[in-house]
Each structure stands twice: as C-alpha cells, then as structure tokens.
C-alpha cells in the first residue's frame, strides 16, 4: 500500500513559539496510525497543520501524492481529509440534524449525504433519539458522537481523530471505542491520537511517539511492542 498522507520535515508553531521541529511521518501504508506522547508536545499542532488550520513555517504535507501544504481547510476537506479536533465544542445552538447536514456541506460529500447519514445512524443509533436536540444540551459523549458523525458526513478518505475519548465516563468510552473500530472496519483509514494505549494497540499497528515536537519513536507492524514497553517510553525511564 502506498502512503496516503506524508508529512515531510514540517516545522510549525504559534507566533514565535515553534512547536513542531522538522517532524516527518506518514500514514496509510500500514492501516491505521496511532499517535501518542505526553501532552503539550505537538500532537494537536501536527493535526492542525495537516488539516490546514495552521500554516507550517516549512516542510511539505502530501495527501494522496498531491502537496496540500498551505491550502485552506476548505480545500483540504474537499479532498476527503477530515479532522475531528480535540474537545470539539461543535456548534452549540445547532441541532444534531443541522450538524450532520453541515458535515455534508463540501461539494464532494453532497452526493453521498443520504448514504452517509444512514451509516452514521447505524454507528451511533443514539443520535436518532436526539435528532432535533441542540448540541449544547448533549452530554460530552453524545457531543463526541455528533463530532465524529459530522466528520463521517464529510465523506472522509482519511479521518483524523484527536483524543476521541478524552474525559468520558468508562461506559461511554467503551461505546465510542467500539464505534471507532467499526468506522475503521467500514473501510475508513484513521489517524488517532489517544492516551489509552490499550485502545491504540487494538486499533493500530503503526504508532508514533511524539515528544518535544519530534517523532521520538516509530513502531511499524511486525515490531512487537508490548504495553509495558510503551508505558516506559511514555513516562521515560
């Protein structure tokens, strides 16, 4: 399998603060990609650079062979590279129905709107019960479901999930993990940032440890890596 996404020597940050230092990674050749590492070391910044919310200072990002560095988020969404940000507040005063309709705003997603909506409601049947409810009235777990559902409406060819289970109660978390696995089985490749290493190992065999704005370690399929080793990398020795 060829690389669906490649990040080559990307340096990015906010104002004078540089967060990513010449970071390189790729996704798509070994199925799902898992990113992990301590907070504040650039995972979210990397994802914002990929989806066009943040313009890298240098480096190249390619999606499906085409450079997408510096393109608008809209142009990147139109290529099917969809990003669900961490702790997405979404649109507090829109209903679930409205959010999903917005997800299909991009012209490439319009023809698939009906089919995608059915898929979303199969993965998250709870959303059907709350169909006309405003996002602000939903629980954290339900809001995360709407976030991911909205992203699925954008007809993703690659879906980026930034900490989809952050701060959720264990039962809801299990529900979301199952949903994410179902999305992956449905044929959408994923890039997932997650603190739950157990879940990450279940989802993906291709992992990156991001530390100090760089890839500290890359784990490819075949390189067996058990939980304890990852934990020790995570927390240092």
């Amino acid at each position: 399998m060829s690389e669906l996404l490649s990040v080559e020597g990307v340096t990015a940050g906010y104002g004078r603060a540089t967060v990513l230092h010449q970071l390189s990674m790729s996704a798509g050749q070994f199925g799902n990609v898992g990113l992990f590492g301590p907070n504040g070391h650039g995972k979210t910044t990397l994802l914002r650079a990929i989806s066009g919310l943040l313009r890298p200072k240098s480096g190249t990002i390619r999606f499906d062979g085409q450079p997408i560095t510096g393109l608008s988020p809209r142009a990147i969404v139109a290529r099917g590279l969809i990003h669900v940000p961490q702790g997405n507040r979404l649109f507090p005063d829109l209903t679930i129905a409205d959010c999903l309709a917005l997800g299909a705003f991009s012209p490439h997603a319009r023809p698939h709107e009906e089919a995608n909506r059915e898929k979303v409601l199969v993965i998250f049947p709870k959303l059907r019960e709350r169909w006309r409810q405003r996002v602000r009235t939903l629980s954290g777990g339900e809001r995360q479901m709407v976030s991911i559902g909205t992203a699925l409406m954008s007809h993703p060819r690659l879906l980026i999930l930034d900490e989809p289970t952050l701060g959720l109660a264990p039962k809801i978390k299990d529900e979301l993990c199952a949903a994410v696995l179902a999305i992956s089985k449905g044929g959408v490749p994923l890039i997932v940032v997650e603190q739950d290493v157990e879940f990450l190992l279940e989802l993906s065999q291709h992992l990156y440890l991001v530390n100090h704005g760089e890839v500290a370690t890359e784990i490819r399929p075949g390189q067996t890596m058990d939980h304890a080793e990852i934990m020790s990398m995570y927390f240092g020795h």
Partner: peptide, 19 residues
C-alpha cells in the same frame, strides 16, 4: 445554516469546509 454555524465556532466551521 452555514451562516448560523460560522457564528458559533470558527474552527469547527473551517473543518466542515465552510468558506
């Protein structure tokens, strides 16, 4: 709907591909 959305969350609006 897009006009109402952009009022509520600019980042989320960008990420669904709104101009």
């Amino acid at each position: 709907l897009a006009l109402r959305a952009v009022a509520q969350n600019e980042d989320a609006s960008l990420l669904v591909g709104l101009n």
